[in-house]
């Protein structure tokens, strides 16, 4: 019995290691090759680099306009995430607390909208944004807020249904206004789900490519995925620079993951299960 257990544990661990290798090896290979010259890569992609040469990183750093791209991505991601969490929690709160037909209808529209794929609204949206002169960063952020609102409202709505109303009623009897009730009583109670919504927003906004590629036309305001795409347009097959650029583009994500891994894993699970 004991022996059987040890064997089965070893098999499980071996399976895990094999699976882990599958998940790690692309990034590992990119990392290894990012230190090589193009000639070295052509000779063999699998060998370790002869020297730790940082030249690729220096050129890729310049060509990617790295700091600027990160700054732009950060601006879009942070602004939209903050706005999304505040606006959607407000909206979800009134949608839960006002049990009218209008409120039910509005919530249904928000829920159904999750199914609408971007490609379906993309063309009229672009025409409309062009007409309203809402291109580049402000337009991008506004549209992102609108797009993200369905999912966030569904999540907040699901959570707030279970927040007891008595506390709010007591505060109302004490004479607190509704905005005050929301910001001082409700908001602290929903901190957990707010973190979840924020994490989900950050993940999708940071990696978004199509919408920024269609709305941002001023150079210098491109986000990181956009810059990476343009970079590869100019340097196809130059994998020495390409791998360095990719490693640099992945670094912020890794930092984010290491810093808030617990929240991310909880957020992703909760977001999926409740949504």
């Amino acid at each position: 019995m004991q022996r059987k257990k040890i064997i089965s544990k070893t098999v499980i661990i071996l399976c895990c290691i094999m699976l882990a290798a599958f998940f790690i090896f692309p990034i590992l290979l990119l990392f290894i090759n990012s230190f090589k010259s193009l000639k070295e890569i052509y000779m063999s992609v699998l060998q370790l680099p002869e020297t730790m040469n940082l030249d690729n990183y220096i050129s890729a750093f310049k060509e990617l306009d790295y700091l600027n791209a990160i700054k732009n991505s950060l601006i879009v991601t942070c602004t939209v995430t903050a706005a999304n969490v505040i606006c959607c929690s407000m909206a979800a709160w009134v949608l839960v607390r006002y049990k009218t037909k209008t409120s039910k209808l509005i919530f249904t529209i928000f829920s159904v909208a999750v199914l609408v794929p971007f490609q379906c609204v993309m063309l009229p949206l672009l025409a409309e944004m062009g007409k309203l002169n809402m291109i580049n960063m402000p337009g991008l952020m506004l549209v992102n807020l609108g797009f993200g609102s369905s999912m966030s409202i569904i999540l907040f709505h699901g959570f707030m249904k279970n927040v007891p109303v008595e506390l709010e009623e007591a505060a109302a009897i004490d004479g607190a206004s509704q905005p005050r009730i929301f910001f001082t009583i409700v908001l602290p109670l929903i901190k957990g789900i707010a973190v979840t919504v924020a994490i989900l927003n950050v993940m999708s906004l940071w990696n978004d490519y199509l919408l920024p590629s269609l709305t941002i036309n001023r150079s210098g305001t491109q986000t990181l995925p956009l810059r990476t795409y343009l970079f590869f347009g100019a340097y196809t097959k130059k994998w020495n620079l390409g791998s360095a650029a990719l490693v640099m583009a992945i670094i912020p994500v890794i930092i984010f993951y290491v810093l808030c891994q617990k929240h991310i894993i909880k957020g992703v699970t909760e977001g999926a299960v409740k949504g």
Partner: peptide, 25 residues
């Protein structure tokens, strides 16, 4: 008033980004 006020930011951007383009689309 509060109902619409609290709903406004989401509803307006949502209409601009999703509802109007879907219908015009």
């Amino acid at each position: 008033k509060i109902f619409w006020l609290f709903l406004a930011p989401c509803l307006i951007t949502f209409c601009i980004a999703v509802v109007i383009p879907t219908l015009t689309g």
